[in-house]
């Protein structure tokens, strides 16, 4: 009790002395009630003291506390919203898929370009053998095809730039995930606990539009398709 007094004295001020006196008065009144003091009466006494304490705070302080509390609520809501959109999926699913698709484009165009060049390399000497106007026309056309095949190099370079940009996005998302780590982790746990069930029906057009299969995916040949269709007969 002595230490408590000393601590209060340390904070100083006539306001605190008055507060202590008021508390002592109310406790004395409660003591007079003996063991029959009702909880509601004790609560009233504490609320009365708390009201006095709040009265001691300045209006500026109260406003500041309210602003901080509102800010805290806003941050909590933002964290919750960001976690609910599952930003970890961007790095674990969306970006890798996008990168794979882009690399598949480069591979496919390169393969197609080489096939075109091979055909032209076969055609070119035939034009030379033919000679005359026909041979010249073939040679000119072959040259135009060679020139047009420049696109593959340009396409590859542009896509490489896009892949670089995606990697930057990935780094930023990583930073975001680190900042909101616990909420994102909670979202991830929730998703793991409840695996997605992709319902596919013939009427659900959107869910059937997956685009070309990626390299490495199990590709279905025309023979497989024919066999599958035949199995319905």
């Amino acid at each position: 009790m002595k230490a408590q007094k000393g601590r209060k004295s340390g904070r100083g001020g006539s306001g605190e002395d008055a507060l202590r006196a008021q508390l002592e008065t109310q406790l004395s009144a409660l003591a007079g009630l003996g063991p029959r003091a009702e909880p509601a009466e004790i609560t009233d006494a504490v609320e009365s003291v708390m009201a006095t304490v709040e009265g001691d705070l300045s209006a500026v302080n109260l406003k500041l506390y309210a602003e901080i509390e509102a800010l805290s609520r806003f941050i909590a809501a933002a964290k919750s919203e960001i976690a609910s959109v599952r930003p970890d999926e961007i790095n674990t699913e969306h970006l890798p898929t996008a990168t794979d698709e882009l690399e598949a484009i480069v591979g496919a165009t390169e393969s197609a370009t080489n096939a075109i060049l091979e055909a032209m390399e076969t055609l070119e000497p035939i034009g030379d053998e033919l000679g005359g106007e026909t041979g010249r026309k073939i040679a000119d056309s072959v040259t135009q095809v060679y020139e047009a095949c420049n696109f593959q190099d340009i396409t590859g370079q542009r896509i490489t730039k896009v892949v670089g940009a995606l990697k930057q996005v990935e780094e930023k998302v990583d930073t975001l995930l680190a900042a909101f780590g616990e909420d994102a982790a909670a979202a991830r746990r929730e998703r793991t606990a409840e695996p997605k069930k992709k319902q596919i029906s013939a009427d659900d057009d959107a869910s059937l539009m997956n685009g070309p299969s990626a390299p490495g995916d199990a590709n279905v040949s025309q023979d497989d398709i024919d066999a599958l269709l035949a199995s319905f007969d």
Binding site: L117, M120, E124, Y146, E147, N150, Q152, D153
Partner: peptide, 13 residues
């Protein structure tokens, strides 16, 4: 060039 296709095009030209 690091693109084999490009090397092929230039060689042919």
């Amino acid at each position: 060039d690091d693109y084999k296709t490009m090397l092929r095009i230039i060689r042919n030209l």
